[in-house]
């Protein structure tokens, strides 16, 4: 059952040049597998784990991003939470691994529009040119003082995840930014 994520986004943030919306609740799992087991794990699980740090694999609603040498995050729509949890707990019997349900720890924002790059860059110093941050890349980074996960789903579309307690803090920055550009 979906629950109220409790984050209000001011109307000023839904314009043409910049549109920031809250993503619906999702299922998220942080999975760590030893490098030597990854090939066997992929085979046994059917998950399409990307190989390079920063790469993502999208199948249907499921997005798997690689954030560290042995660390992946699986995110999917909220309905599949139990199914993934069951699958992972079954795999945990066969591999030395860790799987943590972080579904309700994070909040996801969808930042889109012509000014999306700038809305990310006001708090995050990464180079967001398409060359160094192509569509489909995901990374953990920092937005002002909030640790975030940044995923580029389109040229002008980003998905930003942060801990739920940081969400009002993020919204405040974007509100100030929207006042600046108005």
């Amino acid at each position: 059952m979906l629950f109220d994520q409790g984050i209000d986004i001011p109307e000023a943030l839904s314009g043409d040049a910049l549109n920031i919306a809250l993503e619906p609740e999702k299922a998220r799992f942080n999975v760590r597998v030893k490098s030597k087991d990854v090939a066997a794990f992929k085979k046994a699980s059917g998950f399409k784990f990307p190989v390079k740090i920063g790469a993502t694999a999208k199948t249907g609603t499921q997005l798997i991003s690689k954030f560290g040498p042995d660390e992946w995050v699986i995110s999917d729509d909220a309905k599949s939470r139990e199914k993934i949890a069951k699958k992972l707990s079954k795999l945990a019997g066969q591999f030395v691994m860790s799987a943590t349900d972080i579904s309700h720890r994070n909040i996801a924002f969808n930042v889109s529009g012509r000014l999306a790059n700038e809305a990310v860059n006001i708090g995050c110093p990464l180079d967001l040119s398409l060359k160094s941050f192509p569509v489909g890349k995901a990374t953990r980074t920092i937005f002002e003082n909030a640790p975030i996960q940044l995923y580029r789903s389109g040229e002008d579309t980003f998905q930003i995840e942060c801990w739920r307690s940081f969400a009002p803090y993020m919204v405040d920055f974007w509100t100030a930014f929207s006042r600046d550009i108005a």
């Binding site: 954030f67 040498p69 953990r140």
Partner: peptide, 14 residues
């Protein structure tokens, strides 16, 4: 020149 450890805390965590 100093050899030192660094931690990519808000990245790959290594």
């Amino acid at each position: 020149d100093h050899a030192e450890r660094w931690w990519h805390a808000h990245g790959c965590n290594m």
